[in-house]
Design a protein around this nucleic acid. Structure first.
Ligand code: MN
Ligand code: MN
Ligand code: MN
Ligand code: MN
Lengths: 220, 220
DNA sequence: AAAAAAATTTAGGGCTGTCTAAAAATGTAT
DNA sequence: ATACATTTTTAGACAGCCCTAAATTTTTTT
């Protein structure tokens, strides 16, 4: 009674959409995220409920059960560990690894995951700054701020991103914004919230609000 | 028009069964290797023929087309590279890696394969001594002998195995028979072809014909 | 060259995961 | 409260890959 590739994807997506507060996830939201139609989602929800992986009442949205949560966190753990491997060991850019990890996350061996984790020195975060659940399914929930919420004149460390598209990540690369860099807000334009920032007390840079809302930081 | 997981497995198995001489492979042999029934094999053969990956005439057995050969060798390349990774980098035993590689071989990224190959320093052989095709699909066909064909008193280097089951590989481990070891035939019992051999000019060992027929060697 | 045996294909279905179209339930607005 | 809009579920179907049972073709034996 193994979970299929597709079932794992649904569970992972339900986890991501329900957020830290474990909100109900709607059929339409799942249809959007899985790139399928609402009718297909309903079929799958029935099956996942049957297997005890989600709480599902018709027309009421879904939440993961304890068991479903465990499966989702295992998939997320594998995804993020493989991303670390691809970047740290194989030299991929952080903009290239998501789609490959999307496949690798479904390779089933527990022994493989644990050895990979050890080989990578038990990393806490993936290349995008997302936390990696441990083998027991514990995942820290760091409370980062959006760069757009840092007040003028203050400094912060870049810790992650909200947007994971290659286009956005490549844009950050070209701007010199990488995980761990120190950012100081030098100027904010009121009418469009674009900003001038200084990176590592050196180069200064103009960024749009679109960028500053998708960069996660920790105040200094 | 990507090939499915299942299609790739059929192509790889057809390649392995047709051997160096590219012999025709029978429906029953495929049913056996894929652990399915002959009727299911026929369905798949029709589809693979449709896609131009095999030559198939009803009741005549199958052979790979040029295109099918290319796909099969890519899958074999990935399988064997992942096996090297699992043994060399993650510390798995050669008896543990086959099933995991059976999954990893279907991960599709070409860039991933080439980077993995480079990371492993372009290995020529997998942990079982099987040759790894290069990126263009060229695979050397080493002409090893079975240990059972080495005459009394002669020496040989262990280069590979014919049998890949965990049970057999673990038996070799317990016997101290590893790739690269030097073997001298000290004595052969006529009635059951069991033999006494000496490993690396040190320890001597009794082995059954079952073992000596499944160990590949190169004469010294 | 039949007849018998073995191998292979065809017929008819099942299960998974998807779809479109239609029906039902829920939410919103007057 | 009723009508309209939106969301969700049901109905019916299809492609991929598998199955058993029956028919057909090839191979082997007599
Ligand atoms: Mn990712
Ligand atoms: Mn990530
Ligand atoms: Mn193998
Ligand atoms: Mn191997």
């Amino acid at each position: 009674m193994q979970n299929s590739f597709t079932e794992e994807n649904y569970l992972k997506i339900i986890h991501n959409l329900s957020g830290r507060d474990d909100l109900e996830v709607s059929t339409n939201a799942l249809a959007e995220s899985t790139a399928t139609r609402a009718a297909s989602v309903t079929d799958m929800l029935r099956k996942l409920a049957e297997k005890g992986l989600i709480h599902y009442k018709k027309y009421q949205g879904v939440r993961l059960t304890e068991e479903g949560q465990k499966v989702a966190l295992k998939v997320i753990r594998k995804h993020r560990l493989w991303e670390v491997f691809l970047v740290e060991k194989l030299g991929f850019g952080w903009d290239e690894v998501h789609d490959i990890a999307e496949e690798l996350e479904h390779i089933p061996s527990d022994r493989l995951v644990e050895r990979l984790d050890a080989y990578l020195d038990h990393p806490q975060f993936d290349p995008h700054g997302d936390p990696i659940p441990d083998a027991k399914g514990n995942m820290p929930a760091p409370d980062y701020l959006k760069l757009s919420d840092i007040p003028l004149g203050h400094r912060a460390l870049m810790m992650g991103v909200l947007e994971h598209t290659p286009a956005f990540l490549q844009h950050l690369d070209r701007s010199g914004l990488t995980l761990g860099c120190e950012i100081e807000i030098k100027e904010v334009n009121e009418f469009d919230k674009s900003a001038q920032i200084q990176i590592n007390s050196q180069r200064t840079l103009f960024i749009s609000q679109e960028v500053s809302r998708n960069v996660l930081v920790q105040r200094l």
